[in-house]
Nucleic acid binder design. Structure first.
Lengths: 215, 215, 215, 215
DNA sequence: AATGAATGAGCTTTCATTCAT
DNA sequence: TATGAATGAAAGCTCATTCAT
């Protein structure tokens, strides 16, 4: 059991974490609305309904706020990714499909959120921190998808197919669909996007996947 | 024939155009190095070896310079795209493959240049002008690839396959590979990337493409 | 005898005074390390191992803290000065020398402490309070030294010598030696400094002081 | 002869130097009035009748402005010092006296200017740059005065007297008189100050100096 | 009495833009 | 046309001060 003092400290720590998260959320909203370039600390504070100095109080600098924001996005996506794997049946084919569908579900393939991701990717080459954060997670996902593809290849006896190639193709496909969602919101639609993914899976692993929507 | 006065005017126009291009080139270099957020007009002028005020003299405002820079990138890519089509034999399969290869050739799939493209895409949602420019060209390319896919489908009698789906998948695939090139430069490899594209084409259009890089 | 309630009040007063002194000490340390300009209340609190708001709780404002700090320094020096006089034999010559030596003893002629004195002197013209505090004490010391010089002059029948002149010279000499200690720590040496003072005393009052450090 | 372009460049360089000096002058005025701690760049710009951004345009940072200001003060004093030596007859005694008188002349021993010197001395321990600048010049002056004292000692056959001691005493004496001028403007007067210096010179070098003002 | 989160005024600094030359 | 000194609005950041706990 916690002493009164310890409880106080703990409560404060929780409150502090709350505020940090609130500011990160606010940052995401601002970037989504105004872009990274024109998001100011004043904007972030205003969006959170707090005062000017609040961001530097909790994050010390704007750069740090942005780093933490990207980290949060990455962790949030990661949680979704891992949960999707957990919830999937113990079947490589089903898991792979579930992951692809996850990438296209409204909560993730959403212009507001994608705008933020692309805002950071747009700075990835000039801000080494961003690259490190992104690359670390990408490598992890590539490996997971590679393993799934490998399992499927062995199950289906797909002779000519290289798991690494498939993994890269699938990852790139969803990334590219996200860009399409962001840049061409009028033409983009979630169903067609899923069709694109399915067209690949069905063609490459015909024994595992079949086209549901025939034309 | 031009009069002396007219010739003078024309020469001036050429010189002016030359300077504008010089500044756009400089802008591209700066964005590539420092990112859009920290590229200043002073940076652009310095990179061009010219004076502070020069950008406003030729472009009136920073916003305008950035618009013109994005337009230039789009036109440059477009020229490459159309030339690739022209140079290809009158064969839908070969043309489609040539376009895919073009997207992965060093001059285009180059981190420096991609950094600039992604910098603009990162602001696409908050700067309507950027979106207009990008969407217009994207629509055009989608249509061309759609037509090529359609022709191939008819040639090969590929029953289940939807041209729109294929077109979207192929465009997204290259976009996604570009992101991979930008974010994971250490893992990215042009050969593997081409393999990913080929794996799709071979799987979907087996009578037109074969797995080994024979094309 | 104090009642229980009175004793409680008195204890509180002592605790309060203790805390104030702790904060003044901390202020002196900070000014000595970082200078007056970059000493913040947060620095002072941190140095004291206490919390942000503590200074305003005990001193109401930063200005007040600084005033009290200067007053403390002045009182501390004064105590030293008066004690030196008390401890000296009833002999003007010996007392004057003792005072001069006091000014050069390590506890007083110490870079850390001098840094604080000079920090305040550096603001003396723009902060009237500082000047008042400093001038009041200076006048007192000038008078004491003047009296001692006067006595010596009468004792020694030094015809041409003006006590006021001597008093000012001696005060200025130590002030200047302090500046030297602060600015040229590598060249400065306590022994040489004392020699400088002695050279004056010996030259002006040859019957009272002799060149070798016999005193 | 300069080409038109060269002349333009040269003129600009001169104008730029003018502006820098103007800003340094303005800084000195501000520090003299408000002290180092409360002098802001806005103050400096306003005093110079120019705009906010002007200081950073010419000095890049406030720290740099202050460094340059101190350097200017040091050079200005140095010029005065060296000129005094040049103008003095080829006589060590006269030169030494001239230097002492210089330190007390109104242009130098002036509260406004001294306030600035003491403002910098007040930060000397916490700002290493200030110390370097001050110490370098002090060493030079100490050496010059040491040489003069030495010459006088040899000329006068003053047996017991150490030139180094005298040099330090004289330097410290003027420094201390400056502090007195700054802190006790009401009691301080230039004549008495000179008497203090003379009292030392007369006492130590009786064959070279004689008291003019007897009491 | 003490804490430390929060405030907001005011600072230094940056930079697109203007303009005399 | 081109320069680069100058502007001034707005940014990030600092910090004395306040206040709920």
């Amino acid at each position: 059991m916690l002493s009164v003092a310890e409880e106080k400290v703990s409560r404060r720590a929780i409150a502090k974490e709350h505020r940090r998260q609130q500011l990160i959320d606010s940052t995401i909203k601002c970037i989504s609305k105004k872009g990274l370039r024109s998001t100011t600390l004043a904007d972030v504070a205003r969006e959170a309904g707090l005062s000017q100095g609040i961001v530097n109080l909790h994050f010390n600098s704007k750069d740090n706020l942005l780093n933490e924001t990207l980290k949060f996005l990455a962790v949030e996506y990661d949680r979704e990714f891992m949960r999707t794997i957990e919830k999937s049946p113990d079947d490589a084919g089903a898991t792979l499909l579930a992951l692809m569908k996850m990438d296209l579900k409204p909560a993730i393939c959403d212009r507001k959120k994608l705008a933020v991701w692309f805002a950071f990717w747009g700075e990835v080459r000039s801000v080494p921190t961003y690259q490190k954060i992104c690359a670390a997670y990408d490598d992890k996902y590539d490996e997971i998808i590679f393993d799934l593809a490998n399992t499927i290849i062995q199950e289906g006896n797909y002779a000519d197919i290289d798991a690494k190639t498939v993994a890269e193709a699938l990852s790139s496909l969803t990334d590219g669909l996200w860009l399409s969602c962001l840049v061409n919101p009028k033409t983009f639609d979630r169903g067609t996007a899923l069709n694109s993914v399915m067209s690949y899976l069905c063609a490459v692993f015909p024994d595992h996947y079949q086209n549901e929507n025939r034309h």
